[in-house]
Design a protein around this nucleic acid. Structure first.
Lengths: 337, 337
DNA sequence: TGGAACTCTGGAAGCGCTTCCAGTTTCAGG
DNA sequence: CCTGAAACTGGAAGCGCTTCCAGAGTTCCA
């Protein structure tokens, strides 16, 4: 905190005075706008340096009606949903893209009612130049708010039941289909799936991909065994699955965490992977690499997702008209299948 | 984006006019300040509702000289350091505490030069009401900037070689000591450590804790085998360690990731855990629970760290004088030791 | 019933920056 | 040496909100 010079922050007026020019000229120099002679430009620069002047972002924001910030809002009932490394990677990507555009990143975890109210406020008061929205649930009130907002909004993943104008998604359907096809190509015919919540679009798309592949191969898809993307839910689902269908020889889990959970259940039950049952996950998180056996999985470009969302938002803010984007996924084969 | 009412955002002036009062009264109502009669208060509230008025945060910020935001800056050379679930949890904690104080969270990843320059700008222009600083390296230029900044700064973890006025840390020393003591109490006498980078305070403190415990038990500490907190570095360190000291019967790894890496190397080498070698990690991340065998580790309150940092920052912003905080750690015993 | 002691009210002055625009210079071409 | 176009310049009007303060209106007790 305050230690050195206790003197007030200097203002553009002071810079102008010291440089012997009017405030407007000083402003033009700072924004290196045209119509400033070389001499005055240098004088201003000298003054800026001498006073250690830094423009006040708030005042600038008020005058330009641009906040210089973009918000990433993550919805969900449980705040710790966010502790998922998935979001951390999205943030890394978004942060990099925003940095290029010189925008700040605001993070909003809309878990509590209060949090949701704050997001609404943000949207309506234009507290940011644009917003990225992720992890919406079915009927999430945030979706309506976003529609009504008069600032650019891009969605990360498509919220179920909505067809947003701008979004970046990952090819969940294709990835799930590829994983299932791979299992089938290995000669497995009794392939079930542990799918994610079916009130999310990811959950649905990955289940649909599984179904598609099964039907295309002339196999009967198993009914969905639902988990919530977590390790423990995957373990439980696997237990339920093998109780009900002891004949299984392949499982496609709609997330790595659930895949790892399944692995644990199988190991505890004495079933060998991949000899008895082959398992494939989805996400390609770090955990897939260090599980035992390492998990074959569908890689998705998580950082790229964040990066593209931010780039799309920046384009929108700059008045361009980008088109929705679906990022490719690809199968990474390891030992579990 | 703009869809419904294309009319401009309404302003406080309009609210005041519609309510038949002066702007100051309207302002007082909004901030529920005193000196407003019940009648006018209601009139204003009605007008606010009718116009769907939302105050402009930028204008308010300019007038009050408060931005309404706090920044969390994470330093480091590699932006993906941040993808560590550790930070995600810190964010969850900080976010909750800031929400209570009605502050927004800005996230700054100061990895690139550009990022660092932006943080400096933020600090000097008072672009936030306060800043939380994490993961500083030795001689990190951010530390100096923070000292010079005239806004509240709280450190997360103590940066090496600095003694910041306000910080929240975790009892790394005590945790490491406890882990090592536990290993010794198990009858292990040839206990080595895989420590973290020694140019970070965490790395040093955890190594010191290990040393303390060894010396206190009359055992000779092994020289530090340094990793960088990642799984692969842990695996490599374990390999080096067992090559050099085949007699080892215990290892304290300064992070769960390194602990899990060590587990992998040991398994690959055919050494049984914990029978031949007992392993303890540090952090208590999710990975410790699902590793094989589950990793005994030192739990640290990561979310609490974020929460307390934010609370301390809020206190500082409100003009209070909090004291530094060191959060306790505790041993969680699982199967690996 | 006078006036001390409050409570309310709204005009006006900012907060620090951008930007329009009218006016001034500069300068090449005639 | 004059003229019109082009290049500069800086005064002034905001951006939308908070807050000081002087004055008006009330209350209440001696």
């Amino acid at each position: 905190m305050a230690q050195g010079a206790p003197n007030r922050q200097s203002t553009l007026d002071e810079v102008a005075e010291l440089a012997g020019v009017s405030r407007s000229v000083a402003s033009r120099v700072l924004n290196n706008a045209p119509h400033v002679s070389q001499a005055k430009r240098e004088a201003v620069e000298r003054a800026v340096h001498q006073l250690a002047y830094v423009p006040n972002p708030t005042a600038r924001a008020l005058a330009t009606r641009q906040t210089g910030a973009a918000a990433l809002v993550v919805s969900g009932e449980d705040p710790s949903i966010f502790a998922d490394p998935f979001f951390a990677q999205v943030i890394v990507g978004a942060s990099a893209a925003l940095e290029e555009a010189d925008l700040h990143l605001m993070l909003c975890l809309a878990a509590s009612d209060r949090g949701r109210r704050r997001v609404e406020q943000l949207l309506r008061s234009k507290g940011a130049d644009g917003v990225m929205l992720m992890a919406l649930r079915e009927d999430d009130p945030l979706a309506r708010m976003a529609e009504e907002a008069e600032i650019p909004v891009v969605f990360g993943g498509r919220p179920v039941g909505l067809d947003p104008r701008w979004y970046v998604d990952v090819d969940n359907l294709g990835g799930a289909r590829a994983a299932t096809e791979y299992l089938i190509s290995l000669g497995r015919t009794r392939v079930a799936t542990i799918c994610g919540r079916l009130d999310t679009e990811v959950g649905r798309a990955r289940y649909r991909g599984y179904q598609d592949a099964m039907l295309a191969a002339g196999l009967e898809p198993y009914p969905p065994e639902v988990g919530d993307f977590t390790e423990s839910s995957g373990a439980a689902a696997m237990a339920a699955l093998s109780a009900r269908h002891p004949e299984l020889d392949g499982v496609f889990a709609a997330s790595d965490n659930m895949g790892v959970g399944a692995l644990r259940t199988l190991r505890d039950a004495g079933r060998r992977v991949p000899v008895d049952v082959a398992v494939i996950g989805f996400d390609d998180l770090a955990v897939a690499r260090i599980s035992d056996p390492p998990l074959t999985t569908v890689h998705q470009p998580i950082e790229g997702l964040g990066h593209e969302m931010a780039r799309m938002l920046v384009a929108l803010i700059n008045g361009q008209a980008p088109t929705p984007l679906i990022l490719p996924t690809r199968l990474v084969t390891r030992a579990s299948a």
